[in-house]
Design a protein around this nucleic acid. Structure first.
Lengths: 195, 195
DNA sequence: CCCTTTTCACCTAGGTGGTAAGAT
DNA sequence: ATCTTACCACCTAGGTGAAAAGGG
């Protein structure tokens, strides 16, 4: 009913240990979460939501590999990202893949722009929720509602402010079009900096 | 209740005779239509719509100035552009200016992307409609509904495939950030082309 | 002759990891 | 020592009018 569209790419990252950069102003996720929805009523309107919940009650540190390092810090209630196409009919959701390209992650607890707030060195797992529009209002009242939820373990990641694992950095550079400037084009590309 | 936000800029264009480029793939409007809404119920949800209707039952031609030149061609029913923030509460609409930056104009009658289809050498006037979400469904059934509509004569324009009036071209270059490359920076900027 | 289409250089806007300096 | 921040060069993506070519 909620299927990961780009599972193969996520799997490559998962094998190495996915890391996601978080910044004060907000950073996109790469890979992007993309899902295919099915089994919805074509004429009912739905909201599609994303949240990120702690995947492990530990803090992590990196030393040749990711190691547990004490208890996780207490988390604020997770923010929820509403897919910008919401609300839309089941037919519209099922027609194309649903991409969460625009969601941004931040470590700024004072963020005012609705980005998802995470704690660095902690591990999160993305969850996607599909809820009928008629039940959506009830969410904010804590009323019981019917929600279809899927958690994607293969998409779990550790939030970082700078990449720890060089192999993760390289995998990002190789696959993210925006990082093309760091790919080696035949000969080694050296980046310069003047101060 | 529906007030033009950037009326001064539009007035400058109107004095010369506003032209808007239309292309097969769709072209934005410049200036952008921006309005401030007021008097809405903060808790009611509304749709905000834009359409472009014939402002003059003539075809036009340019010869040192814009001249009427025969009858207007018969028009298809005008397409309607729904502001992408729709539906939203009155409070949300009134909080910020409402910009129609992303609407695109085309001369392609076969357009499949929902762009507004116009006929070159014809004059149009933009209209903005605010309608309660509860009445929105009735629109498609031709039922009587309450719609708050405003037409902006100062924003009327002639659709063209290339600018006719050099002063109009210059005014676009001077004000549209995307045309900065054509501004004269101290010395005359000459653009080259190899074939 | 007048209008339309295509392609281009030149912009705006914003998403990358690198790098060095800052913070704890 | 370890993690965070600020700024940078280098990209993607796409909005401009100019110019030349196409079409009736």
């Amino acid at each position: 009913k909620i299927a990961l569209e780009n599972a193969e790419l996520w799997q490559q990252f998962h094998q190495i240990g996915t890391e996601m950069i978080i910044t004060k102003l907000g950073r996109r996720m790469f890979p992007t979460l993309k899902v295919n929805l099915s089994g919805l009523d074509p004429n009912t309107k739905y909201f599609v939501l994303l949240d990120l919940v702690l995947a492990d009650d530990s803090r992590f540190r990196f030393n040749a590999g990711w190691l547990r390092s004490g208890k996780a810090e207490p988390q604020w209630p997770s923010r929820i990202y509403t897919h910008p196409d919401s609300p839309a009919t089941g037919a519209q959701w099922m027609k194309h893949e649903v991409s969460f390209q625009k969601v941004k992650l931040t470590n700024n607890t004072m963020d005012q722009q609705g980005h998802l707030v995470l704690t660095s060195m902690h591990k999160y797992v993305p969850r996607i929720h599909v809820i009928a529009a008629s039940d959506y209002a009830s969410l904010h009242w804590g009323m019981p509602t019917t929600i279809n939820t899927a958690a994607f373990n293969v998409c779990s990641f550790i939030a970082v402010t700078a990449y720890a694992n060089d192999r993760m950095t390289q995998l990002k550079i190789d696959n993210n079009p925006f990082a093309k400037g760091f790919r080696e084009n035949g000969q080694l590309r050296v980046k310069k900096r003047q101060l």
